[in-house]
């Protein structure tokens, strides 16, 4: 068996996985594409193990480990996807833009742009004015001002 054939199959499979991760919008399809990439890596490991005739069978053992880690990754990934779906009613990765820099200015706070993302270093002198710039939904102003000093 020439080693080139499985390696070329593995490289093409990895590229297909890359296309799927970049082009798909549904989060579950993105997870499927990640599985394709992991399978390409597994094929590489098995081929190199067979080629090098490893006495410890490191390649195949590592393939088994990668399979187990992939199972754990899919379990956790689906739990996160279901949690996102429960909160947002969508799993389109194009629409989950809470961490995007571009959308930060427009929707919520236009007044204090510097103190928006950095919550904890608020000045403690302004007690009742504290819930104004804080984006977190805190119950009372004094508790929200006391909390960072209490935690940190």
């Amino acid at each position: 068996m020439h080693v080139v054939y499985p390696l070329v199959v593995s490289a093409l499979l990895f590229s297909i996985g890359v296309y799927g991760v970049l082009a798909r919008r549904n989060a579950i399809l993105v997870l499927m594409s990640v599985e394709l990439m992991l399978n390409a890596v597994n094929l590489n490991l098995v081929v190199f193990d067979v080629w090098l005739r490893d006495r410890l069978h490191g390649g195949q053992v590592l393939t088994l480990f990668v399979i187990v880690i992939a199972a754990a990754e899919v379990g956790l990934g689906l739990a996160i996807v279901l949690s996102v779906f429960r909160n947002r009613r969508t799993i389109d990765v194009d629409r989950l833009r809470d961490l995007s820099e571009r959308d930060l200015m427009s929707p919520t706070t236009a007044g204090p742009p510097g103190s928006g993302p950095s919550g904890p270093p608020t000045p403690p002198d302004a007690g009742p004015a504290a819930p104004g710039p804080r984006p977190a939904p805190s119950g009372s102003g004094s508790a929200g001002a006391l909390d960072p000093s209490e935690a940190g």
């Binding site: 590229s15 890359v18 798909r24 919008r25 399809l29």
Partner: peptide, 23 residues
């Protein structure tokens, strides 16, 4: 219809580039 993102051309370019380099 909404399963594919808007950047399919970019994704295909990146994937073809990756495949070319790796192969």
């Amino acid at each position: 219809a909404g399963l594919d993102s808007g950047n399919r051309v970019t994704a295909a370019t990146v994937a073809v580039g990756t495949a070319a380099v790796l192969v």
